[in-house]
Design a protein around this nucleic acid. Structure first.
Length: 892
RNA sequence: GGGCGUUUAGCUCAGCUGGGAGAGCACCUGCCUUACAAGCAGGGGGUCGCAGGUUCAAUCCCUGCAACGCCCACCA
């Protein structure tokens, strides 16, 4: 199935096939093995309604890099996949589909509707799973879970019942955030706040004349409000007890216009004397503050809204209007009757439903809540004590800030799709039964007629069990014992409160252990200009398109290259192009290696004999090991960008630019067959190791190439990660070869600057300061010929010899014979430019050294460095000046 | 209202505990050199947001300011 690599790089030709190969061989499934160290990770389960957007692509690429890396490092790794039933989101989607069929959930009824959602799930729910597969995710598919499967429901029931029995869940009539479109309560964090320019209206409320019991003609109080329509439910006007302006009205009543009701004037410190008139209307049923005031003063709560935020019968003649129409009508009426006395621009923020963007209506209703304080304490400590590490650290602050100010969590939803609350009410005696199982009968009155609580639970109430429920909890499964707690969680910052914090709380509560040891918060993906991606802006990048056009590897490596912890990621087409080019480079380099291996027989039996390694070999092995060390170091810190760049630059700048070029010299020009054999071996050896290094990032292309070069084993993905060999890192070798590189680069530079025809060879002479360098340069004569396009390399001082120009690379003097090709003007200009630059350096250094404070206070090492720099610059200046005189001489 | 982050080359970003600023892309020059033109070789370009301070020395530490971005918040 894996042919030799001959054709052009085309990822689409092999990615799917390779994924199938992995699946068939079950490489993703972990088997419990007590002799191996487990590594586990759970996916942030995408909604079944979801499709792969760029955020998922990033999040899952990073997880897959870690999973594949750990697997290759020898861990018994499992990455648990699954999907979330996503209560509101899914219900909304299916409701929309029903709308298209001219029906709705009420016509269907609850049971039929839920069946409909399950049908929808079977049909579309696996779309995102397939997309994850095309991305190359090595999830343990045999362990795939759904947050609404049978076993999971048991977990949720257990959670509810235990929390209830331990007094952490309560039911009550409180003011909650109500979405009039979804017709359900939602939790505080499901409300988004947006700034809005609006108006603040001043309304005159006359005082009641105690004599007549009628509204006074002269005495009144002005209240200001942003929501005039709620006045229909006003049950008081409040002023601050300290406010001298209103002392005289103490204990009087106020006339509520339009409703023609008497309401009390009360004193409450909530009223801010500095705001407006200092008097505030109180609507206990429709404002959270007013609700509190109402409780303090035992005020009546008049609900004027229906579930969909139209006005109800308590609104008198406004009944039936929606809240916006009602507002306009009420303002008109107030104006007509002379009660509207002012209108000011006022900026405030309003809450909208995070699911459907409908403006939230505060509403008093009977709901279930989790009291959070007791759960939050241990979860705060777990992070403070480092048992859970949040990376980057800045998110810890945000976590603490939220946890320390945590408020109770409204968990009941007036929806149909979700885990129904495991509570039953006896129709006979109203007894409430909280139970994991369907109760057989009422334990109190022995009645058998029970009605289950109609509400379902917040989706997050179930997903916060994920790290252990996904392993089978509440059963003590073998998986749970072996794989829990998980090691790493990789997720996005927008669900730290929704999910991460609650998983930590629930895990500590139910498992007495943290759910995961590290959390990496992946960056946000923006467009190339740093703007948020959105469909409406048209700047959204569709990962599925990229996979279909350029391949999953390219998408993955683009994303990892850009993932620096703590910073958002800007994605644009040029970046993707760059990575595509990189993949192409790898492909072609491999093609080169393979074709030469084929021509030169089998290399399997050659050992890497250290005595046989020359400068180039030692150098590339040193670089390889630095790369291994670096990749592991950066992966450990979730610095995917650094790891990726290291991988790319090793391949491109070290392996291709230098090592392959040097190998060509051995293969094509050198007669010595053992050198050639050696070079082929190292080419293969380094490439094979490198493919393994790169595999977690680009799984497909690495597998494809690996299968085409000599290898042992069935798949690169179950091979061992290359071992870092410290002894292979050789600083001396790297320094030594740098001299060679510098000489070659300097010659190339001069050639280019003097516009010497690339095809023509020049004669050069090198003068090394140290014998060691001279020996090295002599030994590498052939490489200099080839890489710098020279011939007749000599080692003598050519100062003053006609036709030579002199330049330097480090301590090496380089003489280049350009007698035939020199462009005198060009050369004079070049030298003068150089002299100017060197003079600048000299000036700076001299000034620094002349400063007595510098000499007396700076460390010796720094001073010596500065002096050396000056020496070197002086030397170079001298060379340049000599050269200039000589070149100018040619002109004469 | 509170908190956090960012500001470095035309663009996107690196710069570890202070000691002569880097990469990729873009741009310019020259090359179809038998792995790769999706390439090779070379090059130009930055008062490191502004103003102070600490220091022999500041992109880096401190203070203030500005711009942009994000999060939290029951301010009628």
């Amino acid at each position: 199935m894996f042919d030799e690599i001959k054709d052009k790089f085309n990822p689409l030709a092999f990615e799917q096939e390779i994924y199938r190969y992995w699946l068939e061989n079950k490489y993703f499934s972990a088997k419990i093995d007590k002799s191996k160290v487990p590594f586990s990770m759970v996916i942030p389960p995408p909604n079944i309604t979801g499709y792969l957007h760029i955020g998922h692509a990033l999040n899952n690429t990073l997880q897959d890099v870690i999973a594949r890396y750990k697997r290759m490092k020898g861990f018994n790794a499992t990455w648990i996949p699954g999907t979330d039933h996503a209560g509101i989101a899914t219900q909304n989607v299916v409701e929309k589909a029903l709308e298209d069929e001219n029906t709705n959930r009420f016509q269907l009824g609850r049971e039929k509707f839920i069946e409909e959602v399950w049908r929808w799930k079977e049909k579309y729910g696996s779309r995102i799973i397939n997309q994850l597969k095309s991305l190359g995710c090595s999830c343990d598919w045999d362990r795939e879970r759904f947050t609404f499967d049978k076993q999971y429901s048991k977990a949720v029931a257990r959670e509810f019942v235990v929390l209830y029995r331990n007094g952490l869940i309560y039911r009550g009539n409180y003011m909650v955030n109500w979405c009039p479109r979804c017709r359900t309560a939602i939790s505080d964090i499901e409300v988004e706040h947006i700034g809005k320019k609006g108006n603040l209206w001043d309304i005159k409320y006359p005082l009641i004349d105690p004599e007549t019991g009628r509204p006074s003609g002269s005495e009144y109080i002005v209240v200001s409000t942003t929501r005039p329509e709620t006045m229909l439910g006003d049950t008081a006007v409040a002023v601050n007890p300290e406010d001298s302006r209103y002392k005289k009205y103490k204990d009087r009543a106020v006339y509520l216009p339009l409703m023609e009701r008497k309401i009390p004037l009360i004193e409450d410190t909530f009223a801010d004397m500095g705001f407006g008139s200092g008097a505030v209307k109180v609507t206990p049923a429709h404002d959270p503050n007013d609700f509190e005031i109402g409780k303090r003063h035992k005020l009546e709560e008049i609900n004027i809204f229906n579930e969909d935020a139209t006005l109800n019968s308590n609104a008198g003649k406004y009944e039936g209007l929606d809240r916006n129409t009602a507002r306009q009508k009420i303002l008109q009426d107030l104006d007509k009757q002379g009660y509207l006395v002012g209108k000011n621009i006022h900026n405030s923020s309003i809450g909208i439903c995070s699911r459907c963007s409908t403006v939230i209506e505060p509403r008093i209703s009977m709901q279930w809540f989790v009291s959070m304080k007791e759960l939050a304490g241990p979860a705060i400590r777990a992070v403070k004590e480092g048992r859970v590490k949040i990376i980057p650290k800045k998110w810890e602050k945000i976590y603490f800030n939220w946890m320390e100010n945590i408020r109770d969590w409204c968990i009941s939803r007036q929806l149909w799709w979700g885990h129904q609350i495991p509570v039953w009410y006896c129709r006979d005696c109203n007894e409430m039964i909280v139970s994991e199982e369907n109760p057989a009968g009422c334990p109190k009155c022995r009645g058998s007629s029970m009605e289950r609580d109609q509400d379902v639970l917040d989706t997050w109430f179930s997903s916060c069990l994920w790290p252990f429920a996904a392993f089978g909890w509440p059963e003590e499964t073998e998986d749970l014992k072996y794989f829990f707690p998980t090691d790493t969680l990789i997720t996005a910052h927008d669900i730290i409160f929704f999910w991460v914090a609650r998983m930590i709380m629930m895990s500590l509560y139910f498992r007495k252990d943290v759910p995961f040891r590290e959390v990496f918060i992946n960056p946000l993906v923006n467009d190339v200009f740093g703007q948020k991606m959105s469909k409406s802006k048209g700047n959204a990048v569709d990962p599925v398109d990229i996979i279909n056009q350029k391949g999953a590897d390219v998408l993955r490596f683009t994303l990892t290259s850009l993932t620096t912890p703590g910073r958002n990621l800007n994605l644009g087409d040029e970046k993707i192009e760059g990575v595509r080019n990189f993949a192409n480079k790898l492909w072609n380099a491999s093609k080169f290696v393979i074709s030469n291996l084929n021509k030169n027989g089998n290399i399997d039996d050659i050992d890497m004999d250290p005595l046989n390694l020359d400068l180039w070999d030692r150098w590339i092995l040193s670089r390889l090991n630095r790369t291994i060390r670096g990749v592991e170091k950066y992966l450990g810190r979730y610095n995917f960008s650094f790891a990726s760049r290291l991988l790319a630059s090793f391949l491109w700048n070290d392996y291709c630019d230098w090592y392959i070029e040097s190998a060509k010299v051995k293969i094509y020009f050198l007669k010595n067959s053992s050198d050639k054999k050696n070079a082929l071996f190292i080419l293969w050896y380094v490439l094979e190791k490198y493919l393994k290094l790169l595999h977690p990032f680009m799984p497909f292309i690495t597998e494809r190439i690996w299968q085409s070069i000599p290898h042992n084993g069935k798949s690169i993905m179950v091979e061992s990660f290359p071992e870092f060999e410290p002894a292979r890192i050789d600083k001396d070798i790297e320094d030594e070869i740098k001299i060679l590189f510098d000489v070659i680069s300097e010659v190339r530079k001069i050639r280019s600057e003097l516009k010497i025809n690339p095809a023509s060879r020049v004669k050069i002479s090198l003068l090394a300061g140290e014998d060691k360098s001279k020996v090295m340069l002599e030994e590498n004569r052939e490489y200099i010929y080839s890489l710098a396009k020279t011939h007749e390399l000599e080692f003598k001082d050519c100062t003053g010899i006609k036709g030579y120009i002199k330049t330097t690379a480090g301590d090496i003097d380089i003489f280049i014979n350009i007698a035939d090709v020199i462009d005198v003007e060009l050369e004079i200009k070049r030298i003068k430019d150089q002299i100017r630059k060197v003079n600048l350096d000299i000036e700076k250094s001299k000034k620094k050294i002349a400063n007595p404070d510098f000499i007396s206070k700076a460390p010796q090492e720094i001073i010596r460095k500065e002096e050396n720099k000056l020496d070197r610059a002086d030397k170079i200046l001298k060379v340049l000046k000599d050269q200039l005189t000589r070149v100018e001489g040619i002109n004469k």
